[in-house]
Design a protein around this nucleic acid. Structure first.
Lengths: 377, 377
DNA sequence: TCGCATTGCACAATCGATGGTGCATCCACT
DNA sequence: AGTGGATGCACCATCGATTGTGCAATGCGA
């Protein structure tokens, strides 16, 4: 209640209380006290006092002194995608299990913002950083290298640091093949019936486009122009791209390769404005897995990037003293339409009552919200 | 390249280089130099040197000295949900626009973890914290209050700090009404045909259940027992709950109120194992909006919590010197089936090429992945 | 009882930035 | 020349924790 924020206890407070010196207190509380031959009794006393006064170390001071912070960072392009949010979820679990503190920040795919965010993290003596989907991984690398901070690219590779990347070429081939097979099962598919939407000029998009083209040549015997539309990673732009093609051709292509779930959002925006028969025949392949995206009213074949494996590999690389700046490919999985996969949330302990329970009826008509503590906007 | 992480330049380095004292350098570089009557020429010299040597302040040292860090935190239960990931996205934009550094962490709905995470953040002299969907907001409050750190609950209210919460009662009524209307339009709906799944014993669930019950009585004239199954916020548990009801009744209820998109994931897991006719008649209302969830093959009416408004209000409250510990309700929106709403990603500048572009063909059959820098897993 | 090895701990420097205080210097004016 | 007020900056303590070093007290054997 008091605004007079009671200052947190410090080792100096405890040193006065215990009659020991600050250095002794410090040693006891950070576990190095045996090495410093502190008597067991002294240690116990200090630990009790610490407990009693709710001592917690000032990590800025510790970080300043040790020039390391216990922070491990994940730099994302954006949060609001199941691909990246599952990455954040997985990342946090990994960092926690190593007793460190995860920090997740996003940089909006803006190279300047990426650098700025990394500078900020560096100023907090971050210990390691996973750089996910960075627009300018090498620029970020430069900053991190100069500061001597370990880092690994993930999702989009750089040329100067180790990178963990989905096998986008193989994934795209698989996806294209699956889409062609599915769309061709009703009636023969023409090469011109298969379009790719989404992506920009980044490594992932290039590889996927390459896989798409190769598979199309192999399976449909041709690779006509005008069937690839780069829209960037933006739902709005994607929607407009679909609208444009629809306006031009009077219909959507029968088979779509959608470069990411963000672009798939563009497709459903399009969908919201068009009658169902625009989708009657449609088969979609989509890079990135989204559980609900897998259950749309038309068949959506997805590629699930193996986020768990990618993060695990990234942490292995962070362990290595001098990881080579090469690309580590992780094979993604093809996900048939209407498939509900488990995700990182399933790993959470005790997230729910052990067994589904019938909810108890409220004791009375307790208007728990109408007791004067509420307001409406 | 060098592993010998060149130490970052400090004000002491610059003080030697410039021939001024460290305090002068400090004043120049943090903008207080006019107040300290430093000569313009001195300031310019130091600024040039700083630029040249890429000086960036050690924020841990600054934080230690000033006992504030420029960090603003968001504590989430989980990342991997569009509701919370959109909250993170919105939060970051707000914090950035205030020139501070956003930090997003999750605590897995575990009260212990919540406290621990907050302790950690406190140790970094975090300046303010938004506590979202905390299982034990008052426990968290106690820790924060003791440290004198401003904070606001969001999504789930506490009794001791200001809270910004969706109007869950009204939202649930709206949603229930919409579901009943929709499901009843084909043939009359019986009160027993309407079940609620999901939630646990938290404020949001209680309010939603209250709204659900009230609406059901109003519209269907009864509120039979056994139609509410609390599953917690877990897809797996939800799935099992649907399976159990299905096993018992041989079918799903015709109308479902699903307490959150996490529970809706349980429904699609169920769906993946059952033939389509189990869903022929189904009408679902779901709390939380997920763009893809809105386009499932059966009608899904959703409630979109106004994350933008909630975050905005939360920041207003953080401004206030002593916000009262009351609940601020934000009205959520009813979202008809197959609706694609804009989200925080739409606010990102220049996320894509201005106009959809045809992708250029690769210059050659450049096997950019087969140049020896790759590996497959 | 002397000497030497432990044992147990205190001292003080240090990490980098901040900000209150105070001391020269210079100019203007009487 | 002497006084007074700017002007421009240096000095130093401080934030809290860490860690190398050193010294008193104790124990033990000779």
């Amino acid at each position: 209640m008091d605004r007079n924020a009671k200052k947190k206890a410090t080792i100096y407070d405890l040193s006065v209380l215990s009659g020991s010196s600050p250095s002794t207190v410090s040693a006891v509380l950070n576990g190095t006290w045996r090495k410093r031959r502190i008597a067991e009794a002294t240690a116990e006393l200090i630990q009790e006092l610490a407990e009693k006064h709710q001592y917690t170390a000032n990590l800025q001071a510790r970080g300043l002194r040790r020039s390391r912070s216990g922070l491990v960072g994940l730099l994302l392009p954006v949060h609001d995608t199941r691909y990246f949010s599952s990455m954040a979820q997985t990342f946090e679990a990994h960092v926690r299990s190593r007793g460190q503190c995860p920090v997740v920040v996003s940089a909006c795919r803006d190279p300047q913002e990426e650098r700025a965010v990394v500078e900020t993290l560096l100023s907090y003596s971050i210990e390691a950083l996973i750089v996910a989907g960075a627009t300018d991984p090498d620029g970020v690398h430069q900053v991190l290298e100069a500061a001597g901070v370990r880092h690994v690219n993930i999702d989009l590779p750089g040329t100067k640091a180790a990178s963990v990347v989905s096998d986008n070429y193989t994934g795209a081939r698989l996806l294209t093949e699956a889409v062609v097979r599915r769309a061709g099962s009703s009636r023969p598919l023409d090469a011109g019936d298969l379009h790719l939407f989404g992506g920009r000029d980044d490594h992932a998009s290039r590889e996927r486009i390459r896989g798409f083209r190769d598979a199309r040549v192999d399976l449909l015997g041709a690779d006509p122009d005008g069937c690839i539309t780069a829209t960037g990673y933006s739902p709005g732009t994607s929607q407009r791209a679909f609208e444009a093609v629809f306006a031009r051709d009077g219909r959507l292509p029968r088979a779509l390769f959608v470069n990411s779930s963000i672009n798939l959002e563009g497709l459903i925006r399009f969908m919201a404005h068009h009658p169902d028969d625009a989708f009657a025949d449609l088969v979609v392949g989509c890079y990135d897995y989204d559980p609900f995206g897998s259950f749309l009213p038309f068949p959506v074949i997805m590629i699930r990037q193996d986020v768990e494996a990618m993060i695990a590999r990234a942490f292995e690389l962070l362990e290595e003293p001098r990881p080579a700046p090469r690309i580590h490919l992780i094979r993604p999985d093809l996900v048939p339409p209407r498939t509900a996969l488990r995700g990182p949330l399933d790993a959470l302990k005790d997230e729910a009552p052990a067994e589904p329970q019938a909810a108890p009826r409220p004791r009375a008509a307790a208007p728990s919200l109408s007791d004067g503590r509420t307001a409406t906007v």
